[in-house]
Amino acid sequence: MKSLLIAGKDVKILVKDRKALLMMIVMPIVLTAILGSALKGAMGGGGMPETVLGVYSNGANAWATSILRSLEDEALAITVEQASTEKQLHEWMEKGRVDVGVLIPSDWGDVSGEGRAVILPVAGHGSEATIIRQIFDTYAMTADAIAVSTELLMTEAATISAAGGEVDVKALHDGLAATLQSIANEPRDYVEETSVGEQSVSAMQYYAAAMAAMFLLFNAMTGGKSFHRERQTETMTRLMMTPTSVRSILAGKFIGTFFFAFFQFTIFMAVTHYLLKVDWGTNSLQTFFIAICYCIAVSGLSMVMAVFTTDEKMADVVGSMGVQVMALLGGSMLPLSVFPEALRNIALLTPNSWALTGFTSIMSGTAWSALWLPAGTLLLIGSIGTLVGSFRLKLHSL
């Protein structure tokens, strides 16, 4: 009960602080609108940028071998990486090692016409995926036309020769032209495009998730400053003189940070959904589940901020710098897919990168099983932060 009273007091102070509300709620909404609109066409570049294409073929296929050889042309600026399994290809996509993935079935190019290559765009690389699809479609149409026309030509010539007659070159030419024209006009799909989930993530969606992940981090700084503010005003000393235990005080601070962070996310999600038309995914339970896990991580980090800074000013400086560094490394400023592999590995150490991964996965339509890793990592960060903060605060008797 005492913990809830302490938490309620902290939340009340933050809600009454207009500067804090402007910084924590209004600013991320404005930045989401600006970045999402301005970078809508830039999150895949223009023309044909350097593209890393991940390919998995589940069997020997003449078409696949031929087109992959063609894609190695330096003029196309495409680097082809062949995965040994479909699972490996998806792992490359999740880690941002490839920009576009392609699954080529063993029956692609068969006379049945049922086999289709599947294009899998990575978030932020929609234009590259479109270009890759066009390349595969054009190649398939051309190869199919050549195969059919050649078969027709050889069959006709063999029939005429077997009958002892002469081959009519003009008739073969006209038949070949008619066949090529009919194949070119036939509405047949050789390639299909899909996303890792059920749908792709737009620039507006990505930056909504990125700004939420970034600005919720500021609660770690705010929670740390709250500890120092109460020390300076001797509120903490007066609390210690009451029957309130150290555990209750720590729990109250943790709960206060958690509630304000969750309140901030809920307001941000509602405003971006209704005002900016951001689709946070079809499963709101998944979104709030990741949000709760992230708020726990942020609350744990606020404990670390409190015990490893000496005063409110230091907490402000260290917190601001820390948030900016983690925002840059964690993909809140630029998509992780544009980073080199070394930086993508470092990003795994930042809590906002895991929250961003969870939110964007939900937006693309993912199963619960795909959320256990980011959720578990966020809970681990929160638990470690809370334990470290609690131990150090108790050690120094506040």
Score class of each variant (00 low, 15 high):
residue 22 L to R: 09
residue 360 T to S: 05
residue 103 L to I: 08
residue 40 K to V: 05
residue 127 S to M: 10
residue 27 M to H: 05
residue 100 V to M: 08
residue 248 S to G: 11
residue 352 N to E: 02
residue 246 V to I: 11
residue 109 G to R: 03
residue 124 G to D: 02
residue 107 D to Y: 06
residue 124 G to C: 04
residue 326 M to N: 07
residue 353 S to L: 01
residue 136 F to T: 03
residue 373 L to G: 06
residue 344 R to Y: 02
residue 229 R to I: 06
residue 313 K to Y: 11
residue 152 L to H: 09
residue 56 Y to W: 10
residue 58 N to D: 12
residue 34 I to M: 09
residue 350 T to Y: 00
residue 362 I to M: 03
residue 118 V to K: 14
residue 14 L to W: 08
residue 33 A to S: 11
residue 396 H to K: 13
residue 59 G to M: 01
residue 166 E to H: 13
residue 94 E to Y: 11
residue 324 Q to H: 12
residue 193 E to D: 12
residue 75 A to L: 10
residue 30 V to W: 05
residue 115 G to V: 02
residue 48 M to E: 09
residue 310 T to K: 09
residue 289 F to C: 14
residue 253 K to E: 01
residue 352 N to R: 03
residue 382 G to S: 04
residue 153 L to Q: 10
residue 58 N to S: 15
residue 176 L to D: 12
residue 264 Q to E: 03
residue 393 L to N: 05
residue 155 T to M: 15
residue 109 G to A: 04
residue 248 S to T: 08
residue 288 F to Q: 05
residue 60 A to M: 09
residue 37 S to F: 13
residue 152 L to F: 12
residue 229 R to D: 11
residue 46 G to M: 09
residue 146 I to L: 14
residue 29 I to W: 03
residue 6 I to F: 00
residue 273 H to I: 09
residue 40 K to I: 03
residue 343 L to F: 05
residue 182 S to T: 14
residue 356 L to S: 06
residue 143 A to W: 11
residue 312 E to W: 03
residue 2 K to Q: 13
residue 307 V to R: 11
residue 119 I to F: 03
residue 358 G to F: 01
residue 42 A to G: 15
residue 388 V to F: 00
residue 275 L to W: 08
residue 311 D to M: 04
residue 249 I to F: 04
residue 224 G to T: 00
residue 78 I to K: 04
residue 311 D to A: 10
residue 359 F to K: 01
residue 84 S to D: 14
residue 116 R to V: 08
residue 97 R to W: 10
residue 198 E to K: 15
